[in-house]
Every structure is written in C-alpha cells, then in structure tokens.
Simulated scan of single mutants.
Amino acid sequence: MKSFYFDHAATTPIHPEVAHEMIAVMQQGPANASSMHHYGRAAKAHLNRSRDTLARHLGCKPSELTFTSGGTESDNLAIIGAARAQAAKGRKGLITSSIEHHAVLHTMQWLAEHEGFELHIVPVDNTGMVKLDQLADVLDESIGVISIMHANNEVGTIQPIEQIGKLAHEAGALLHVDAVQSLGHLPLNLNELPVDLVSFSSHKINGPQGIGALYIATGTPISAIVQGGSQERKRRAGTENVAAIVGFAKALDICVNERNNWQPFVAQLRNKWVELLQQELDQHPFIINGHATNTLQNIVNISFIGVDTESMLMNLDMAGIAAASGSACTSGSLERSHVLKAMGLSDERLNSAIRFSFGMGNTIEQLQEAAPIVAGIVRRLST
C-alpha cells in the first residue's frame, strides 16, 4: 500500500544533506564544546559556525541566540525566565492568546497558579486573528510579558506581530513570539522587529528533532531556568548537542536559500489539494478554517461537515494517509482542538476538522492519487 505524508506541521522528514553533515560531525570523535583540548575546540568551532549561520539568516547577532532542546523548552525559558525577571521590577501581569500552543498556554497558567502571576488570555476572531483592541484593553504598566505566536500551527493564521510589538513596547512590556511554525516559511529580520524573545525548533524545517533555539534580544532581562553549568552564556546549562546544532543550521541554510523556489511550490500543493477535493466532493461541500489570505501556505485545515474527526483520521491512516486533527502534542487524545474552539466555530465544524500540511517529498502526483481516497472516505463516513 502506498503511503502519503501530509503532516509536515507536526514534524518534517530530515533533509539528506542535513543528515550527512550531522553524521560527519558525529564521526569526528567526542564533541564537548566546553572541553579545553583539541576535541573540545573542534566542537566549539562547529558550534560557533552554526550559531553564525542561524544568526545571519534570522537577522540578529550570534550572541542573541541560545540553543535549547526545541520549541517547548524555548517557550518555557522565554516565558518563565522573562516573567521572573520582570516580576522583580513589579510587573507580574502576563498576556497571551487563546490559540497558543500548549507550550505557551500551560506555561503561563503554571506561572499564574504557582507563582502568583496575573494571566490575561485575549480572544481571537473566527479566522484565528488576535483581537488587538482587547489586547490593548488589558495592557498596562503591570504587564511584564506578552506571548503571541507568529503563525498558528493548526490553521496557519499569521498574527500582526509588528503591531503587537509596538503596543507591548509602548507599555514597557516584553514580547515573546513562538515562531516554531513560521520558521523557514516567512522571512525574519529579528533586529528590525519589535520583539524581545523568539522561539524556534529544528524539526519543522527538515532538521533533527531535539534541538531548537531562543532569540534573546540584547538587553532583554531573563533568568535561567536550568542550572548546573555556564553554557550558552549561563542562560541554559548543559552540554550542547553539537551534531544536532550543526544539522539545525544546515536545515535553515537550505530552507532560506531555496525559499524563493520552494514556497511557491508548497502554495501550489495547498491550492491543488483544495481544488482536487472540491472536484471529488462536489456533492459534499467542506469548509476551510483559518484566515483566507493571511496564512501559511503549507497548512490547510478542513472541516468535512458530518464526518467525525477521529473516525476520519483512523480511516485515513488505514488508507496510508498521514494527517492530523491539530497539534501533534495533543492529537493522541480525544480532546477537540482548543484552537478551533477559541475561534468560535460551530460544533459541526469543530468535530469534523482535519489538518493537512505539506512539505519536502510531496508532489502534485501524490495529491492526485490521494484526493479520491480521501473523498471516498468522506462519502462512506457521511452516509
């Protein structure tokens, strides 16, 4: 049976060139960048070159990047570290949106429950856009940290980060942005954006899992949350994963250098998928969730009205098609998407939503083969 991987928003296949560079580093011998001997110096050189590469593509200084184990740790370090630093100045207010990844929502809720922070969760409209007027209403001198994602991982909606950053800085608050899903898809020049902290993860851009980074703008107050060493400018203790960091840098290098060719093709895949499903399901209309234009081009979230999400996913899997109902961190449970709930969608849309996301390895031919299979499942489950 053929298989089709349409779940790139969850994780991406590693690029062959990335794997090649990582293996080369691992075969060079022990690699602890804190060691003083020649093995350690070689590891440190890999670390510095990788940090330089990432900084060049992200438009920031190498010293402003701290390596972590991935997006979740980056979010935790940014939010907890900055919130505690701001609390020391008397700012114990936090703001986030109702559609954030749980790495942000749960972290902020934890701070409110265990460390006495005051949390404000601002709503979004039915396209997933943050309601800026309501964000502005709760933004005052008590707010220490605002965390708003760049682009949503379930519906792809892109937030107006520049406007949010301006509001934050006018009020003296720090802005953290979860850019895990947008990295590589949207151009970033961090030193020109009104942002203080930005989270990234390698495995969303055909790099290795288990490695990420946090941008910390020069002068941003932050407290370390992992103790035990002086690595990463004392912001994140622990021996750096040199091979994975090299892979991360290589993945972003490929992603940025090929973006002008790759992004139009990914957009073509998304548009073709919708077109094919419309042709196959002309008697069974579906609804696309999220913003119509201000969205990532590799994600499409579709409600197949009358078809239960879980039943659809099981049948897709049995047919060799990998898709998702939302975040990979929660899709193993029966809980419906908190993102779609926050968007105020009807139960029939909420309970029938499937996310398809495209990337390296997908072709138009795959879509042409898979669309009739998906349509057949929809028709069978809706009868």
Rank of each mutant, 00 (worst) to 15 (best):
P160Y: 05
Q181L: 10
A353N: 15
Q159P: 02
I79S: 07
G71K: 00
G238W: 01
L47W: 05
A342H: 14
V378E: 10
L186R: 12
N294R: 13
L340C: 02
E310V: 14
I305Y: 04
T53Y: 00
K272F: 03
Q159N: 08
Q209N: 06
A85R: 12
A42H: 09
H185I: 08
P285T: 02
P221G: 08
N315V: 00
K61E: 01
A217R: 15
E73F: 12
G70H: 00
Q28C: 05
T293P: 03
T295C: 11
E280P: 01
P160F: 07
D7H: 12
D317H: 14
H46I: 00
I121H: 02
P285K: 11
R233I: 05
I80R: 15
N126L: 09
K166T: 13
V177A: 06
A179Y: 03
G40V: 05
E280Y: 11
N271Q: 14
I148W: 00
T330C: 05
L132Q: 09
P30I: 08
S182N: 08
P16V: 07
N301D: 03
G290N: 06
N261I: 06
S357H: 04
A103Q: 08
K250R: 15
M360I: 14
V266L: 10
M343E: 12
L345F: 02
K2P: 08
A237C: 11
V246I: 11
I143S: 13
R41T: 11
V226P: 06
T53R: 13
S142N: 15
D196V: 10
T68M: 00
K250C: 07
V25T: 13
L313K: 08
D133R: 01
H37L: 08
G238K: 10
I305R: 09
S201G: 15
H57N: 09
I305M: 07
E365A: 13
E141M: 03
L47T: 07
R259N: 09
Q27D: 11
L174M: 11
N298A: 04
M22G: 07
M149E: 13
E240N: 14
H169M: 01
G93D: 11
H102R: 07
A224Y: 05
V177K: 07
L296V: 04
H38E: 09
V198A: 04
Y39S: 02
G320L: 02
D178R: 10
G144S: 08
D317G: 13
S337W: 09
A168Q: 05
R56N: 10
T53I: 11
S142P: 04
R380P: 01
G90A: 10
N189H: 14
I364C: 09
I211Q: 07
V25E: 10
L296S: 06
H284Y: 14
A82W: 00
L58A: 06
G172E: 00
S35M: 07
K92E: 02
L186V: 15
D75P: 03
W273N: 03
F356D: 01
H37C: 05
S325G: 12
H120P: 02
A168V: 07
L313Y: 02
C255K: 15
L65M: 00
I321S: 04
